[in-house]
Amino acid sequence: MITREKADILALFEDAKSKSAFVNVAAPMVRYSKLEFRSLLRRHNVQLCFTPMITADTFSNSPSARFSEFSTNSTDSPVIAQFAAKKTVDLLKATEIIAPYVDGVDINCGCPQSWAIAKGYGCGLLKNPELMSDMVQTLRRNFSSKMSISVKIRLLNHEDFKTTVELARRMESSGVSFITLHGRTPYSKPADPVIHNGIKVVKDSLRIPLIGNGNVKSFEDAREMFQKTNCDGVMAASGLLTNPSLFDDEGMTSLECIQDWVNIASSAKDNLQFNTFHHHLTFMLEKQMKSKTRVLFNNFTKKEEVFGFLEENFGVKAEDKDCLEEYFDFSSDDRYMNSRAVEREKIQLWDEKKEGKFFKEFMEKEEEEEEGLGFLYE
């Protein structure tokens, strides 16, 4: 079994607090918070990364799901695995498998999607604080205090924050290391404003660190979150997709960031599927291409086409250097593999015919825009 010394997550918060600053955090984004993207973010001032949200029962029961959902290497730290779970036993089994390779485990109690709530995941857990407490206490009993245990929640009411305070305090007494709070309710629309005051009220009621989350699209938004809530960390999600150099205080994705992503993709070889590589660049180049150029770019199907496009239009060329540490080989870990017969190359890491919901919505928005006149980069 591969093991590595765990990073001290709480020390990150303590260090930031000593500097009157906040921890820069990358959210768990389904399909997008993979190892390669986490590696890019760490090059651009992100201090704490989460894996994509992983369904605990599938992860614990399926070796192929483990390879699809999680990969890591020796420099992938600090990293927290986020699980969606509705049964304590499923969460415990999944955590037992992934614990040697991560610095903490987070329980998703904040996903507002209807399918998640209907199945008892995400925001569905907010209606069952007893189960949330049982999950936290079970993990705390079974794992070293060096591993962080956390929950990601939402405000329970957009005006009266008493119930959210009560829930947060209950999680604190159950043993969580920190809490992430999205400043909207489970029933808010994506365009609704973030309720900074609600985050502040909850933060002021706790002794443990709190990460503020919601509508952080720029470094200015991150500063506003910190100043209005006094949170210990600021978490960005879609803002980091469109600009991975957000915490560098860049107005849009920097050329250096694009160069880093190309180098990582080249170094990752077949470990990084084309759709993942291409999707990230679609987000990153959103503000740097006009419509006709985007149509051309979106029709590429090979990495070589993308490399040629980037070199011609941006002067970005894949560098022949190994900039990504070797991936961990789980084959010697029977508990992780579940069977030595599992063959890595037979596992489908990405369905090339299936696009993620966020990417589909992003592309629909792009198609609605008026066609531009050629290529623009400033």
Score class of each variant (00 low, 15 high):
358 F>Q: 14
76 D>T: 06
88 T>L: 00
219 F>S: 12
105 V>E: 02
109 C>D: 05
319 E>H: 10
260 D>V: 07
329 D>S: 04
66 R>T: 00
37 F>A: 05
18 S>W: 01
378 E>M: 15
127 K>E: 13
188 S>F: 06
286 E>G: 15
320 D>Q: 13
222 A>H: 05
346 K>W: 04
304 E>D: 12
99 A>W: 04
227 Q>C: 13
211 I>G: 09
309 F>L: 06
344 R>Y: 14
277 F>Y: 07
199 I>S: 03
227 Q>P: 14
22 F>Y: 09
119 K>I: 01
291 S>A: 15
297 F>Q: 03
135 M>E: 02
250 E>F: 15
293 T>P: 09
16 A>K: 03
95 T>G: 00
211 I>F: 06
181 L>T: 02
57 D>M: 00
322 D>S: 13
294 R>H: 12
235 M>T: 08
117 I>E: 11
353 K>V: 05
45 N>G: 12
327 Y>W: 08
303 K>Y: 11
246 L>F: 09
244 P>G: 10
28 P>N: 11
140 R>E: 02
307 F>N: 14
100 P>S: 01
76 D>Y: 06
281 L>Y: 03
97 I>S: 00
86 K>M: 07
175 G>Q: 03
241 L>I: 04
277 F>N: 03
28 P>F: 10
157 N>V: 04
319 E>P: 06
168 A>V: 03
168 A>I: 03
134 D>Y: 10
47 Q>R: 09
1 M>T: 09
13 F>W: 00
107 I>G: 01
256 E>G: 15
170 R>K: 13
264 I>V: 06
319 E>A: 15
27 A>E: 02
111 C>Q: 03
307 F>D: 10
295 V>I: 14
33 S>E: 05
44 H>R: 10
372 G>V: 04
57 D>H: 00
196 H>C: 12
97 I>N: 00
208 I>E: 03
310 L>A: 05
85 A>W: 00
35 L>R: 08
106 D>I: 02
144 S>F: 05
53 M>S: 07
335 R>M: 11
238 S>G: 13
18 S>R: 05
323 C>M: 08
328 F>R: 08
68 S>W: 08
8 D>M: 09
154 R>D: 04
261 W>M: 07
270 D>K: 12
84 A>M: 01
259 Q>W: 07
60 S>D: 00
42 R>H: 11
160 D>N: 07
172 E>I: 01
58 T>E: 15
212 G>W: 11
63 P>I: 08
356 G>D: 06
17 K>M: 05
204 D>A: 09
132 M>L: 07
115 W>G: 08
7 A>L: 08
57 D>V: 00
25 V>K: 09
350 W>A: 15
145 S>P: 11
270 D>Y: 12
40 L>K: 04
196 H>M: 14
191 A>P: 13
161 F>Q: 04
175 G>L: 04
204 D>H: 10
297 F>G: 03
140 R>M: 03
369 E>F: 12
134 D>Q: 10
266 S>W: 14
90 D>K: 00
153 I>E: 07
378 E>Y: 15
311 E>M: 09
202 V>L: 06
198 G>S: 05
144 S>M: 05
207 R>C: 13
241 L>C: 06
133 S>G: 11
267 S>R: 05
369 E>N: 14
31 R>T: 13
146 K>M: 13
42 R>M: 10
245 S>R: 10
121 Y>F: 15
232 D>F: 01
299 N>D: 10
